[in-house]
């Protein structure tokens, strides 16, 4: 996190999110933005947290459970209203390898 991100880092992150970056301008734009964000985190990293215990949740409560009881699922038209492409009851997506 101390080094600036390279073009390859940006391309890799784009691939992880399956986002297509078309041009060098786009890569540059993301690189600038990402590096700005990382510089901000570098600032936070300067704070001495030696004696602070890691926090994963700001709430102090624990164990919010649900009983194993069946609730009604969505109806077919509710499920499919956000689905761009379907075949019968399947949701269709491009193949991803």
């Amino acid at each position: 996190m101390t080094e600036d991100l390279t073009d390859d880092d940006i391309k890799h992150v784009a691939w992880l999110a399956r986002i297509k970056l078309e041009s060098q301008e786009e890569i540059n734009e993301y690189k600038t933005t990402f590096n700005d964000i990382l510089r901000y985190f570098k600032k936070i990293n300067e704070i001495d947290t030696e004696k602070v215990r890691p926090t994963f949740h700001i709430s102090r409560s624990v164990n919010r459970f649900r009983e194993d009881e069946i609730k009604e699922s969505l109806k077919e038209d509710e499920i499919m209203q956000n689905v761009p492409k379907r075949k019968d009851k399947f949701i269709v997506s491009p193949r991803i390898i």
Binding site: D68, K71, S73, L74, D88
Partner: peptide
């Protein structure tokens, strides 16, 4: 049949919140 038992949580719709099955 496909996509019969789905809800906002297991479809990952925005605003839905998971809650843990105690028996699990």
């Amino acid at each position: 049949p496909p996509n019969t038992y789905v809800c906002p949580v297991c479809l990952g719709l925005p605003g839905s919140l998971p809650s843990v099955n105690k028996k699990a």
